[in-house]
């Protein structure tokens, strides 16, 4: 790629890419992220829709908060089990509301640590604020 084609104006996310300079040598330039610059609004829209869809499933008693955060944070059952050190069969149960309501404080805390939220946020299904596109622009 030629150097002039590599520049993207995106101060929110800078990256290093390697390009062909005018003298024919290859080297690094610091530039902006193409996908953040052009598609971040689409990312936030999809996150918002995913959150709403999962919230609906929780309300209908189809999934537990553990399942909500597992999907929201793109974790697999096996990965969540390994990170919380809770056996897979137990994690599988905790994905259902009926079993989630019986989880001990210790296990709730382990889930909360992995999801990087408080136990309160876990129980109340509050993933915390994500920056909106307008906030990204102002950052």
């Amino acid at each position: 790629m030629k150097e002039k084609e590599g520049y993207v104006d995106c101060p929110e996310q800078q990256v290093i890419i390697y390009v062909e300079k005018e003298n024919g040598t290859y080297g690094p330039i610091q530039t902006g992220s193409y996908i953040t610059k052009n598609y971040i609004d689409d990312y936030f829209l999809k996150r918002k829709n995913l959150e709403a869809s999962l919230q609906e499933q929780v309300k209908r008693d189809e999934i537990s908060p553990v399942k909500f955060f597992m999907v929201f944070e793109d974790l697999t059952l096996s990965e969540l089990s390994a990170r919380t050190k809770i056996p897979t069969r137990k994690v599988r149960k905790h994905l259902l509301p009926v079993h989630f309501n019986k989880i001990s404080d210790d296990l709730l805390n382990r889930y909360a640590i992995v999801f990087n939220i408080s136990v309160d946020q876990l129980i109340n299904i509050n993933p915390g604020p994500e920056l909106t596109n307008a906030e990204v622009d102002n950052k």
């Binding site: 990256v15 390697y18 390009v19 080297g27 690094p28 992220s33 996908i35 953040t36």
Partner: peptide, 21 residues
């Protein structure tokens, strides 16, 4: 696919530009 090839620290084009360098 775009993120894995470009943004996730590859130097562009899935490390191909950095390897060319």
């Amino acid at each position: 696919i775009n993120i894995l090839l470009e943004d996730q620290g590859t130097g562009g084009a899935g490390f191909r530009y950095m390897y060319a360098t």
